[in-house]
Amino acid sequence: MILEIENLCVDLGEFKLNGVSLKADRGDYIVIIGPTGSGKSIVLETVAGFYKPIRGKIRLEGRDITFLPIEKRNVSIVYQDRALFPHMSVFENIAYGLKKKERNSSIVREEVRKIAKILGISHLLHRKPDTLSGGEQQRVAIARALVVKPKLLLMDEPFSALDVKTRENLRKLVKKAVKKYDTTVLHVTHDFEDVFSLANEVAVMKDGEIVQTGRPEEIFSRPLNDFVADFVDGD
């Protein structure tokens, strides 16, 4: 078991996570779905270390990381808005995290070129993020997150702001890259296409709780309650 989230409770005043539990094996691709405001992103950001839980545990490869500083977790995050550093080139963005771990600049260059090739952005390395399309920016953000070989990759609606064709291409690229880097993924989405294309496990959230987990076909064919049935039927 690479990730174990156990009875996680987070109190953000106007919103609470109530006893979220989730497990992932190495290489799992878990997609979290649920209505807006159900707490999907809060789960990701708590695992990343941005929020401190009031109860519960997060273990990564058996190590308790619940209160570990963000930078010590080896967990990367990709946002819908990419959050690429605008003052750095694409190369510098991708190399940023790697430079912290690897002093040898030729290895850094080699690793950046490798991930850039996998994600089809080799021709963009000298460009600034604001000159790229949304799809290109998202590929850069994914490259930056993956190149550091995180134990866990968190993706918060990474394809939401993109057109259908770009989303399809990105799903294929992400699938390939994640497999190549042997990374476990937690992916939050509203798009059921992400579930069918990428997930081997799905978690459905409602009001700060996980109401059902299972393989995609289980969730869609055997919903546990009316809420899940309505939700997976109503998209």
């Binding site: 990343a48 270390g49 963000i70 930078e71 977790r73 080896n74 940023y96 995290g97 997150a145």
Partner: peptide
Amino acid sequence: VNPRYELVSRSLGYG
């Protein structure tokens, strides 16, 4: 300045 930049930087290993 969007605080997300700092959080992403920290998730990439920087203090």
